[in-house]
Design a protein around this nucleic acid. Structure first.
Lengths: 189, 189
DNA sequence: GTCTATAGGATGATAGAC
DNA sequence: GTCTATCATCCTATAGAC
């Protein structure tokens, strides 16, 4: 039985609202009303709207970094690494599908410090992904397409998984993982 | 020599700002200031902020519908249709890369009438795409993965092309088309 | 931990002068 | 076609009572 603090309730309801309307279109009043309290009461639990955003976005970015570090220290082929990253990203998205929307669409509204932190995490994630792809091409594991095109195609698909999860969410996780790996790695023909 | 009306200037600058900050975070004052005029002057050219959004989003949605209709009336294989849709979407994105961001992220801020129109166009585009994929699987042109996974993977990649276009935009269009079709259709191994 | 009251400023939009 | 002036409303956030 996990105790849910008021702060966690605020973050949860804020994530729902931010996802549906975007960070800027959601007011502190909206968040408070959804919780059945007044806007001013929120400030007893958090310092302001920007703190809420940071507490939603940064933990996710850190989780992705953790997944990448795990994969990087494993001694497997480039293809094996890509497959694990896809599976890890599917797991993380399904666990935090609201937050994923906000990470994608509202990171630019983070305060300066958090924005820098976020962009550093994101850039180094991408750079590591790029290097794995380059290595796969060099070692003739992958077809020789432009590495940037491969990187973009995989990351776009994974980053937007949250959009699709709710529409057709009935698909069983293991079927999703299997078919997503198959489609992204082997193509469709 | 194409004459650019003030209205077109407003739409252009608004698209730039909406893309960078999101529709809700951009004020009429912001748009006016970027044009070197006062906010109230904007209303001589457009009826309000929501009209600007509609004039940016809907023409793009209609262009995609046009492309789909073109492909549907062509007598080629399912694979051929998919390839043409990918190329068409790349062309359209490169021509309207600012607007594409807004289509993806701010359609929910359209007024009721435009939102209904937009969602109808978008849903039928997706449904047509889905049917082409289903047909390809039935006729053994494609590998048997879940059609929804294929649809999602291709559409996510294409819809986010605008994000990547500016980062690594140096890639020549024909190389991009060729490699993107290759990656999406044949996979990476 | 929530409330009322309020500060101080931004917002979309209109009226009317030039 | 742009301006100034303005309205009515909303915004984030704080102070202080209970």
């Amino acid at each position: 039985m996990k105790a849910v603090t008021r702060k966690e309730e605020i973050l949860h309801i804020a994530a729902l609202l931010f996802k549906a309307n975007g960070y800027s279109a959601v007011s502190m009043r909206d968040i408070a009303t959804a919780l059945g309290i007044k806007a001013s009461s929120l400030y007893n639990h958090i310092s302001g709207k920007q703190e809420i955003l940071g507490l939603i976005v940064l933990p996710i970015a850190e989780e992705f970094t953790k997944g990448m570090n795990l994969v990087l220290t494993t001694e497997i082929s480039s293809l094996g690494k890509i497959k694990r990253l896809i599976e890890y990203q599917i797991d993380t998205t399904l666990r935090h599908s609201n937050a994923m929307a906000i990470v994608n669409n509202d990171w630019m509204h983070l305060d300066t410090e958090n924005k820098t932190k976020f962009l550093n995490l994101r850039n180094s994630y991408e750079e590591n992904f790029r290097n794995i792809i380059r290595q796969g091409i060099t070692q003739n594991e992958f077809n020789p397409a432009h590495p940037e095109v491969i990187l973009f195609s995989i990351l776009s698909t994974l980053r937007n998984l949250y959009l699709w999860h709710e529409k057709r969410g009935k698909l069983e996780v293991n079927v999703l993982k299997r078919d997503m790996v198959k489609v992204l790695v082997n193509g469709i023909v």
